[in-house]
Amino acid sequence: MKRADGKPLIHDLYEHPLSGPEIEARSFAAIDTEMGNYSLSQPQWEVARRLIHTTADFTMAELLSFSVDAFDASREALLAGAKIYADSNMIRSGISVARLRQINPDYSHEDIFCHVADEDVAAQAKEVGLPRSLFAVRKAKEMLHGSIVLLGNAPVALLEINRLAMEEGIRPALVIGMPVGFIHVLESKEELLRTGLPYVVLNGRRGGSPLAVACLHAMCTVASGQVGV
């Protein structure tokens, strides 16, 4: 695509301004139109459409699984200002505190934890020969009960969350299980479905930190009552 006058395409935007929020609204409208009919509930579709918006991939809607209590659990946790544990600093940086404050004004960046880059975690992992994500979860163990857990990077972290739930009775308020990759990914997600924890899972090998963040942002939208807006 090119302009008749040969100018760079950014001049189209200069001449017909659209703000960031307007572009996002048009994007969601385009997703709704292109997707057409879907079998998801409105809250589930809010998650799906935000993942589609993040990836431009409509198959996201087919890969999602939700526990029956996922939305109630996430709303209660957000209203209570639950701590948030992330398996990567990309997630920690990507979470919008402004969105969290729409639900609970007391949220701050200090309520979001990630230990994967901590020196003691790295030292333990090197000594034992296991991934840092495992020891990062163990370091966070005391704050995991009642927390919101976002996993977009490390399937081993999800395996350890599952173990803590099954063997030690640690019960996060919600687990967003979206690790990406080829090793331990499928089994970690499948096991999460059997733990009895509230969850949102992106089935299969796909996932990633941006998707985990997008899911939490969608849950904030649902909790604030702004679904479909």
Rank of each mutant, 00 (worst) to 15 (best):
G6N: 03
K7A: 15
P8C: 06
D12R: 12
D12I: 14
L18V: 14
S19L: 14
S19Y: 08
P21Y: 10
I23W: 02
E24I: 14
A25C: 06
S27L: 13
A30H: 03
A30S: 14
T33P: 00
T33L: 06
G36E: 15
N37R: 13
L40H: 09
Q42L: 11
Q42P: 13
Q44T: 10
W45Y: 15
W45N: 08
W45F: 15
W45S: 09
W45M: 15
W45P: 10
E46T: 15
E46C: 15
A48P: 00
A48M: 07
R50Q: 10
R50S: 04
L51P: 05
H53E: 04
T55N: 04
A56L: 07
D57P: 01
F58V: 02
T59D: 13
M60F: 02
M60A: 12
E62W: 07
L63N: 05
F66S: 01
S67R: 00
F71D: 03
D72C: 08
S74R: 02
S74W: 12
R75K: 15
E76H: 12
E76M: 11
E76D: 14
L78C: 14
A80G: 14
A82E: 09
Y85W: 13
Y85Q: 01
D87K: 06
S88V: 08
S88R: 00
N89V: 05
M90R: 07
G94F: 04
G94C: 02
G94T: 04
I95D: 04
S96C: 13
S96P: 07
R99C: 03
L100M: 02
R101L: 03
P105T: 08
D111T: 10
D111V: 12
H115G: 00
H115T: 11
E119R: 00
D120E: 14
A122T: 08
A123I: 02
Q124E: 13
V128K: 08
P131G: 05
L134V: 12
V137A: 02
R138T: 00
K139G: 00
K139Q: 13
A140Y: 09
H145T: 09
H145E: 12
I148L: 15
I148V: 13
V149M: 09
V149Q: 01
L151A: 08
G152Y: 08
G152T: 01
P155Q: 06
I161C: 02
N162H: 02
R163S: 09
R163D: 10
L164T: 12
E167H: 06
E167W: 05
E167P: 01
I170C: 11
P172L: 07
A173G: 09
A173Q: 12
L174P: 00
L174N: 02
G177P: 04
V180N: 04
F182H: 07
F182G: 04
I183Y: 08
I183M: 07
I183Q: 10
V185Y: 06
V185D: 03
L186H: 10
E187C: 07
K189D: 06
K189R: 08
V200G: 00
V201C: 09
V201I: 15
R205K: 13
P210T: 06
L211F: 05
V213S: 06
V213T: 14
A214Y: 03
L216R: 08
H217S: 10
H217Y: 07
H217E: 14
M219I: 08
C220Q: 14
T221E: 12
V222P: 01
V227Y: 01
V227A: 07
V229L: 12
